[in-house]
């Protein structure tokens, strides 16, 4: 393969990964890393380095829209970023030390989990069930947002910020290790433990991903794991693909199509797992 062909193929694959990621709500990294490693036989550290940059791009692109829609709880995001960023530093540090085969194994597991988690239909809990937390009150974490489907302003209270911080540290470690946004870990953590409305959890998790990924990107860049020749076409491709995906359909609604995709994603995650274990 010639370098120019490689650039074009990488760009095309990333475009599709960005498009699929945004349609499925999985994020580009989860798709682009297996594509680069399994199809193009790129070293997994370079694939992760390229993916980290994509996470920043997709998070910043989407966050701009969410923040304007006042869906993001900025205080919750900034508080939890202390945990996700420390986690990301830990994860990025470990990633440079361990045998790459474990990165494949962990990636396979997280990818499998995320694809199944994506299928579960999230249920909106009742806002008045929440026990107001004194720390959350002192930190002014409670907020409100305009719910378009209800057509009114919804106020909510935040519970258990310390549990949230602990879970976010774990999500940050995974982000740093694998160069993914790990939204599949962040959203349930905010939804179930801190009792944020699901729309707020999604927007806030997405908002934090950019800063979390920037922390791991710093480590990866300085270490020499972000190869511009690979990361540049990947970042450009995923960014354009994700933008196109969000304009095209919003989200894939048909359950049958989603299940079909989940089966493909599960198959790929198994491939990653096997590559690590062989």
């Amino acid at each position: 393969m010639t370098p120019i062909a490689f650039t074009l193929i990488t760009f095309a694959i990333s475009l599709v990964a960005g498009l699929l990621g945004s349609l499925l709500g999985l994020g580009g990294g989860l798709i682009v890393i297996p594509a680069l490693t399994l199809l193009l036989h790129i070293d997994i550290r370079y694939a992760i380095g390229a993916s980290v940059v994509c996470v920043i791009a997709t998070s910043s692109g989407a966050a701009a829209a969410y923040v304007r829609g006042r869906m993001t709880n900025l205080r919750v995001a900034m508080l939890l970023e202390i945990a996700t960023v420390s986690g990301a530093l830990t994860g990025a540090f470990i990633a440079g030390k361990i045998n790459p085969r474990w990165l494949f194994v962990l990636f396979g597991l997280i990818m499998g989990y995320s694809s199944i988690a994506m299928l579960r239909k999230r249920q909106e809990h009742l806002v008045d069930q929440v026990q107001p937390d004194s720390l959350a009150t002192r930190l002014h974490l409670h907020g409100s947002f305009f719910d378009e489907s209800l057509g009114k302003e919804v106020r909510y209270e935040v519970a258990q910020p310390t549990v949230g911080l602990a879970l976010m540290y774990v999500a940050g470690v995974v982000s740093g290790l694998l160069g993914i946004g790990s939204g599949a870990l962040k959203v349930p953590a905010m939804d179930l433990s801190m009792r944020l409305p699901i729309k707020v959890s999604t927007a806030t998790s997405n908002f934090m991903m950019g800063v979390t990924a920037a922390a791991s990107a710093g480590v990866y860049f300085a270490r020499g794991d972000i190869n511009p020749y690979i990361a540049a076409p990947v970042a450009a491709g995923v960014m354009i693909g994700a933008t196109g995906g969000s304009r095209l359909l919003g989200k894939l609604q048909s359950r049958a199509v989603r299940i079909a995709f989940v089966i493909v994603v599960l198959f790929v995650s198994l491939q990653m797992l096997l590559k690590g274990l062989r």
Partner: peptide, 16 residues
């Protein structure tokens, strides 16, 4: 958060 982000660059340079 900002201090941690700056630390990330230094951590990578330190050969971490």
């Amino acid at each position: 958060v900002l201090v941690l982000l700056i630390l990330s660059f230094l951590l990578g340079h330190a050969g971490a």
